[in-house]
Design a protein around this nucleic acid. Structure first.
Lengths: 332, 332
DNA sequence: TTAAATGGTGCGCAATGCCAA
DNA sequence: ATTGGCATTGCGCACCATTTA
């Protein structure tokens, strides 16, 4: 900075003013300083600035559930939203979520003096661990459960599940099963609740409930079980990956969708449209979720109230994996 | 730090020595200082340290091709490897790669005084843009082309494609088509070359070559074209997502795999095993790629020669989407 | 006594904010 | 209304002083 000041014939202080857009600078001076900056290829030293301002302009992102479509997509959009808002985003991806890995991750970020943390996690353990602590910086949880933590931003899972189930009901299905996500995920709980509520509101009894782990493998296992139950004519699966496995199990079992079973997924992964059959699923607007996560964090850091809804509403995307129930007696 | 020194009854210098693991500290003193650190919840100020050491301990990751399985997976493993190696990883995800978005991204990172940059990009434009410049910090390209840039780490795409094609040849296929990735991606080029070489080495003429864009949609389009050509009995598809679309097109066309066509993908996404039929594909060891990327960056930063292979060898995973060619005349 | 081990002092890193010119 | 000077931020290093074997 001293070099720039010398080149422009001003004090280093004036250079600082130009950089920070102070209003009280004569245009000619500003011009001189700016051209000196350009010529010298000068870049302000972030460390020095952080030291004196006590602001790092950095936020941390903790992401869990790597490999899954949803968390991954959200991670990207949050990074992007952070950069647009002028933050430097540092991230930590956790393969497994335990008290110790999570604590380490938070510690890693806090050491870097992040001004806020966004955690993408739906596991109950993670939520409980962070909700009882104060890290000294704003903390926003994405895809968690509103009832389990305070600063949550995400998609209205329950509404999405409700709409997906309602779609199956409208088609005329009366025995609608659900393959849910793992026990410890709040999203899995919310989707199950949506399914349950939609059935109750239609006067239907809950169908079979099976547990998966989000993987195609577990969806396949669930499908193997369900395919034997010919009373069940529709399945709401908690994510697209499991739906892939389930579709295959039904196909193998000689009862392919949508003729023998209607299937709805959740996520709308890019390939959902090209599965056999194309998958009816629930689309979540991850870009909007990312934007809101950063908006909430921003508000927390600035200490103001954010005026934004916490939950984004998802949409059901209709495709060929759902149809009216097949009634052998009707066609016979 | 002054507080810690006071609490432990030593000078701030001694505290600094303890934190940085200086050998010349009496165990009892070290113990006193450490407990003071714990009690006060003291965390060294990264900015101050960076200022004086002129080292940020931060590296930058630029990732392109978000949404694709490969780049996403690699991103995670690099982040993880970086943290294990003591680096703070900041990342920038680029939705589109142009000279300006890439320059912005690099600038964003350089402003944070990153000590090195890892770029996950296979697009020729990106490689060309960075290979003619010196950013003042080590720069490693992941998944690029060894011939296009110097510091490249990745999977041996060509070998993987060669093995995949050779597998089809061994099964007895003689007309083997290829659905490649977009024109501007070096990985797409390498996979095409591997396909071409394997055919040439077997004395076979190249089959039909179609271009896709990595999406299931484009694979579906390619499949619609290929399914009409009954001479082609096998297709090597440059990634699993396109293979999904292609499988569907063949299914719709009444020529399902593996009976009428053998299909090999590339990536081994988690759901590949549960497609209809389960997809034979090429698995890449992303964890190893991430580790090596950081190892190379580390070496570059320390100014030493890395003693590691740049390319990781992939494996062909055999599943049900490939089989011996179907010969109507033989069964008739 | 010498040599090794340990602790203390003050400066400088690169920026910003306040106050004075 | 502009511009400059001085103090300040938290830490590490060079250097010096002191204790211990």
């Amino acid at each position: 900075m001293a070099d720039v000041a010398r080149a422009a014939g001003v004090s280093h202080q004036t250079v600082s003013r130009v950089i920070n857009g102070s209003p009280n600078i004569r245009p000619s001076t500003r011009e001189r300083v700016e051209s000196a900056i350009r010529e010298l290829g000068y870049r302000p030293n972030t460390a020095a600035r952080a030291l004196v301002t006590r602001r790092s302009s950095t936020i941390g992102i903790i992401s869990t559930g790597s490999g899954l479509y949803g968390p991954n997509s959200i991670h990207r959009t949050i990074e992007d939203a952070a950069r647009s808002a002028g933050w430097f985003a540092g991230s930590v991806s956790l393969a497994t979520v335990t008290a110790s890995t999570l604590t380490d991750a938070i510690d890693h970020l806090l050491r870097q003096a992040v001004e806020g943390i966004v955690m993408i996690a739906g596991q109950v353990e993670a939520l409980e661990l962070v909700s009882h602590q104060d890290f000294g910086v704003p903390f926003v949880v994405v895809e968690g459960d509103l009832s389990k933590a305070t600063n949550v931003v995400g998609v209205d899972q329950q509404a999405g599940a409700y709409a997906a189930t309602a779609h199956l009901v409208e088609l005329g299905h009366t025995r609608i099963a659900h393959v849910r996500g793992p026990r410890s995920w709040t999203e899995a709980d919310a989707r199950e609740t949506g399914w349950r509520d939609a059935l109750a509101d239609s006067g239907l009894a809950p169908g079979t409930l099976l547990h998966g782990d989000w993987s195609a493998r577990s969806g396949y296992a669930a499908g193997r079980t369900l395919v034997a139950d010919t009373d069940t004519t529709a399945v709401f699966v908690a994510n697209d990956q499991m739906a892939i496995g389930l579709l295959r199990a039904y196909h193998e079992g000689g009862r392919p969708a949508p003729r023998h079973v209607s299937v709805v997924g959740f996520d709308d992964t890019p390939e959902a449209e090209y599965l056999q059959p194309p998958l009816t699923t629930v689309r979540q607007d991850f870009v909007e979720v990312g934007r809101r996560a950063i908006a909430f964090l921003d508000a927390g850091i600035k200490g103001v109230e954010p005026h934004l809804e916490r939950l984004v509403s998802p949409d059901v995307i209709l495709r060929a994996s759902t149809a009216r129930p097949f009634r052998p007696e009707a066609t016979a």
